Simulated scan of single mutants.
Amino acid sequence: MRGEKTTTGYGITVKSVSNSDGKINVLVEETNPDKNSVLSQVVTYPYTIIETDIPSCDIAVKNSNGKNYSYYDIERSLPPIIGISWASGNLKNIYKENNFIFLQIENSNGVSQFFYLNDNDDGKNKIKDLKLDSNVTIKYALGTPQKYKNNSSFPLTEIMLPVDKSSFTDKNWKDLGYFKNSDKNMQWTLSYDNELMKENINNSNIYVVDSNGTIIPTQASLTDDKKSIRVTPLKPYTAGETYYLFIATDVTSNIKVSNQGFRMQFQVSVQ
């Protein structure tokens, strides 16, 4: 998937899948609209789905221009994740129609996106703490869209409420300092003396928020030696914005501290 595009005309296809010495190489081709084309000014989400039998090994994805894309390991015991994306914005409305609950999220550019979940006990439980006009982060699947008032909506899988900004100064979190970097896709590596348990490496224990407390989509993954955690943004950070990385003590029982965890403030410098 190529993420959110502001017009039609974008596409992505898989050209080949090959096995080279135990490493799966996936070659994709991305197409962009011609500069002189007349395009519909609607938000689109170009993606393609393929199915192939592959062993449990390293997977590398590269486009025809040579750009490499990260692949995040998926537990083989879980259903395959076909396509996942994220959106952040202001919760404008919640609608119910045809056994679905629809959420309207407006991003910082004033563009609305719609997401849906089933109107059942599980769906109602996911939205029970939501308040209109609050900033939320949505994790959704690029699965079968539903229509709401001629708007395509994607299936919602997770809703993350903003973090209370008092946690930026809460003394129950131990500060790790302040850092500044010019890389909008900067990746943090957290190193420990002892091995960590994979089930503790999740978005509840390790997360990044902006200065408004809005959760920023990131992926926390355990390295092969199980002694380090990599925190990678799933969308580029914004230059000039201040962010906070939180690491809860639940990540490991090897650290004995009398606080909730660790907090690090960082900023992407303006070029």
Rank of each mutant, 00 (worst) to 15 (best):
Y95S: 02
P236V: 06
V38G: 08
K180L: 13
P145D: 03
F102V: 03
K147I: 15
T137K: 02
Y192C: 05
E30Q: 11
N65V: 13
S108A: 15
S64G: 09
T242C: 09
A141S: 14
W173P: 01
S182M: 10
G123H: 00
G11L: 05
T242S: 12
N150G: 06
K139E: 11
K256E: 09
T214F: 08
D34F: 06
W173Y: 06
Y47S: 11
R263W: 05
Y192G: 03
G11Q: 02
I50K: 04
I24Y: 01
S85C: 09
I247C: 07
Y178K: 12
K174L: 12
W173C: 01
Y71E: 10
T189I: 11
N68V: 10
S112G: 03
D58V: 11
S167G: 14
N202C: 07
K5Q: 08
S191R: 12
S37H: 05
V136C: 01
Q267R: 10
N19F: 15
K139P: 00
Y72L: 04
G240F: 06
I247K: 02
T31G: 07
G240A: 06
I127S: 00
T8K: 00
T238D: 12
D58C: 09
N150W: 08
S258Y: 11
S191A: 14
D193K: 15
E199C: 08
E29W: 04
T44W: 00
M197I: 15
V26K: 02
I127H: 03
E30M: 10
D183I: 10
K126Q: 06
Q146N: 15
N107Q: 04
F154I: 05
